[in-house]
Design a protein around this nucleic acid. Structure first.
Lengths: 219, 219
DNA sequence: CTACAAAGTTAAGCATGCTTAACTTTAATG
DNA sequence: CATTAAAGTTAAGCATGCTTAACTTTGTAG
């Protein structure tokens, strides 16, 4: 069992990994975990020594199969807890991330499986992100585009919010731009890349930062 | 906020404190937490420096008001989680202690209050132990005696199980000697202090170790 | 009341995980 | 293709929390 710190590093590496299998930079991890680059270099050596990542000096970090398994397991815990806290304890969308962050490292496999069962083996968490299953499989997301790439006049459905910032989530909740919501693009404004969209029959203006974090499918 | 280790020490000191306000010995804490006496001495200094305990060399440890507040808060978390895991997630009596042990240090006040609310502000946990309330008050236990002190021919009700060992709990569950159960003392055997009791209309023999851990009230 | 065992403390050392400061490598720019 | 800024690494040091070994205090039995 890796330590809590190591779990956090593995989770972060997973987060920055893309489909191409490129290595992840030390700086990205360091910024994400709010530690120094030095700490990340240090940890990289340890993770590599234990076979969780492949690591070559100056060449970045890459999860091994073993490392990815751990990362997926943490994500599974995190996302199941988020869903559980919302569904069972009535916490709000914006409250759950922080709580799950604490709980994910301190929950036995046994308990997580119980939660999974109670929730009837869900595939997606409250942000629309896939919940890795007990067997390690990751449910497939639909083909999505960032809202910023959506086309004027067309209708879309919100399928994922790619950001964990509490401020963003609070703001989305306030605008009632929640998961699976259907919206229509009224106008894209070129000068600041903001967008006017129709939601609940009303027109609202949303910033580029928001449209980059919200992913949608065309209806 | 004290660290997880410090929380464990404070919890342990609380556990060994009696009503007389005697100091708790280093060795008791060390044994309870499965660390060396040296580690306990060391920690005692740190806890004292931060005002959580009163500590004089060779004279034992004693919680201050501030330290007791922390200890009660941890107990509150622990016991609420235990009850929650049984009631909501359907875990068994014997499974919850270990899980709660992990969760108690990683749950925000906010989340614990939500759990408290969902459970409708319970006063006792599944072992019959009082759950410290949000305001710091500790619900009063009834006047109990250990089952070992019970009198032949009389009837009693199980009110508390003063032990967290999984083996004991499993055994009690198997015998259906659960909280609030009513039993009758048939016979006390002097040679090994075991006891024959009637439960569910059947006579069973229970050891001294068991009768010392189960607390009852006379009916 | 002394001596001795048990309990407790101190000291040195180790692992983990972080910091800052100094240094090295990489890669982009003119 | 040389220079240089950015990215990454190493080194030294610190805090926490533990260990074992050596030592001190306490309290009890003779």
């Amino acid at each position: 069992m890796p330590s809590i710190s190591k779990e956090d590093y593995l989770k972060s590496i997973y987060k920055f990994q893309n489909e191409n299998g490129d290595s992840v930079s030390t700086a990205d991890i360091a910024a994400d975990l709010d530690v120094s680059n030095a700490a990340t270099s240090d940890m990289a050596k340890k993770l590599a020594a234990q076979g969780f990542i492949k690591y070559e000096k100056y060449k970045g970090l890459k999860l091994t199969g073993k490392g990815e398994k751990i990362a997926l397991n943490i994500l599974r815990r995190h996302r199941l807890w988020e869903l559980f806290l919302i569904k069972v304890l009535g916490l709000s969308w914006s409250e759950v991330h922080r709580e799950a962050e604490n709980l994910e490292h301190n929950t036995s496999e046994f308990l997580i499986d119980k939660i999974d069962e109670l929730l009837n083996f869900p595939e997606f968490d409250p942000h629309g992100s896939p919940i890795p299953q007990k067997n390690g499989e990751v449910p497939k997301l639909p083909d999505m585009i960032p809202l910023s790439k959506a086309v004027e006049g067309k209708r879309y459905q919100i399928k994922n919010v790619h950001d964990e910032s509490e401020d963003l989530i609070n703001y989305l909740t306030k605008l009632n731009l929640v998961l699976n919501k259907k919206i229509k693009i009224i106008e894209k404004l070129n000068f600041d890349n903001s967008m006017i969209i129709e939601n609940d029959g009303e027109n609202i203006t949303v910033s580029e930062k928001l449209t980059n974090s919200v992913f949608v499918t065309k209806i």
